[in-house]
C-alpha cells in the first residue's frame, strides 16, 4: 500500500464512522419515528458483528499446521471463562492476552 492509499484508507474509515454517528441527527432531526426495520437491525446486528469480528481476528490462523491454532484457542478460552466468571472487562482482556503472549513466546 502506498502512503496515499494508507491516508485514503484511514480517511474512508473516518468517513464511515462519521456517517454512522451523524446520520440519525440528519435523518431524524424533526423527531420522526425511526423505521421499525432499522430499529430491528440496530438490536439484532451487534451480536452478529462481534461474532464476525472474532473470526476476522483469527482469519490467518492455520488449524492444519503447527501450532494448530492452540495458542489462540487457549487464549480465547481463558478470556471467555474469566469473563463469564468475573465479568471484569479489563481483567479478562489483560489475562487472555498475557496467557497468549506467554504461550507463543515460551511454549509453542
Amino acid at each position: 500500500m502506498t502512503l496515499f492509499q494508507q491516508i485514503l484508507t484511514i480517511a474512508i474509515c473516518a468517513i464511515g464512522t462519521m456517517t454512522t454517528r451523524f446520520l440519525p441527527f440528519i435523518v431524524f432531526f424533526r423527531g420522526e419515528e425511526t423505521p421499525k426495520y432499522i430499529q430491528y437491525l440496530g438490536k439484532a446486528l451487534p451480536g452478529a458483528i462481534f461474532g464476525m469480528l472474532i473470526v476476522y481476528c483469527l482469519k490467518n490462523v492455520s488449524v492444519l499446521t503447527y501450532s494448530y491454532g492452540l495458542p489462540e484457542l487457549i487464549g480465547i478460552a481463558v478470556t471467555a471463562v474469566l469473563h463469564i466468571w468475573k465479568r471484569k472487562t479489563l481483567l479478562s482482556i489483560a489475562a487472555g492476552t498475557a496467557v497468549y503472549m506467554l504461550l507463543i513466546q515460551f511454549v509453542f
Partner: peptide, 19 residues
C-alpha cells in the same frame, strides 16, 4: 511484546460475551 496483537481478539471476545 510478541503476541500483544491478541488484545484485539480478547477485546472482541469480551464485547461479544457482553452482548
Amino acid at each position: 511484546i510478541q503476541g500483544i496483537d491478541f488484545v484485539m481478539t480478547a477485546m472482541f471476545v469480551v464485547i461479544f460475551l457482553n452482548q
